[in-house]
Nucleic acid binder design. Structure first.
Length: 270
DNA sequence: CTTCTTGTTACTGA
DNA sequence: ATCAGTAACAAGAA
């Protein structure tokens, strides 16, 4: 579920809820979802606290008081929910209990996400493998044009590839293409400067608006306090197949692209 | 029963 | 080397 706006909402929420709290115990319910060794994971967390929380693309980096990083990848259905007392979570995979008895629970129904403890060198290495964050101030129109040069895939596949730009997933890729009036299957080389500019503006507009609305809740996504997002009420194309296009009344078609379901308006997206 | 799902990676073939 | 398509991880909804 979580793409950039959802992960950013979680990051902001956690930053208000857990910074400085001393970790008293760590319960690993699904060892497979902890990289890499279970004992080291518990030992390196116990007695430490989270000093600050960063994000790049869809990845959360929690810097510990020790200097190590607790890295969270949420996959499709991962959640990081803070709570007090006993929370009955059916799909809890890791529970981090704080000294004051509050706790942070990593839930993940489909188990595609994982937690990872890394020293500063490894954290840097992981961070460098991820492309520029789509809301990084350094990501401007010239930057997008630069990373698109010499490429010739379909624009949506490019957006989904986290090594080029990070943070855009299947929902926002379709919403961005719709907003820019560009078909998701357009070849990169066929895009002129005006179209690249429109795509750039749409990336920023859509992602910022969704961060404002605290992300999209379709099924699993909740923020660090367990609340749903609001951006699902603003979606224009995702899951709208069969309905008339809100912009032009045209037919919204569903296809498959880069292995993912893809929606676009046959009339106003060129 | 089937097909679908917000992510990522490995593998295949072109 | 680059690109497109598929399966795999696993669980649940329709």
């Amino acid at each position: 579920m979580p793409e950039l706006p959802e992960v950013e909402t979680i990051r902001k929420g956690l930053s208000k809820l857990i910074l400085g709290k001393i970790i008293a115990r760590v319960e690993i319910l699904k060892p497979r979802l902890v990289k890499y060794d279970t004992n080291g994971f518990v030992n390196k967390l116990t007695g430490k606290s989270v000093a600050d929380i960063q994000r790049k693309g869809k990845v959360i980096f929690m810097r510990l008081s020790s200097g190590d990083f607790l890295i969270a990848r949420l996959g499709m259905t991962g959640q990081l929910v803070f709570g007090k007392g006993n929370i009955k979570e059916k799909h809890a995979r890791v529970i981090i209990g704080f000294k004051d008895t509050s706790r942070l629970v990593f839930n993940d129904t489909r188990e595609f996400g994982y937690l990872h403890l890394a020293d500063p060198q490894e954290k840097k290495r992981i961070e460098e493998k991820i492309g520029i964050d789509a809301l990084d101030p350094k990501f401007n129109y010239e930057y997008l044009k630069y990373i698109l040069r010499n490429r010739n895939g379909m624009i949506k596949a490019f957006f989904l590839d986290q090594k080029k730009i990070s943070g855009i997933g299947n929902i926002y890729a379709d919403e961005i293409c719709f907003d820019a009036k560009i078909r998701p299957n357009r070849k990169i080389q066929s895009l002129n400067d005006t179209e690249i500019k429109k795509l750039y503006n749409s990336i920023i507009r859509i992602l910022k608006l969704s961060v404002e609305k605290k992300g999209t809740t379709f099924s699993d996504y909740v923020d660090a306090s367990g609340n749903k997002g609001e951006f699902q009420h603003y979606l224009k194309i995702y899951k709208k197949e069969g309905k008339p296009c809100s912009r032009c009344g045209g037919f919204i078609k569903k296809t498959r692209l880069a292995g993912r379901s893809t929606r676009y308006c046959e009339s106003c997206q060129k």
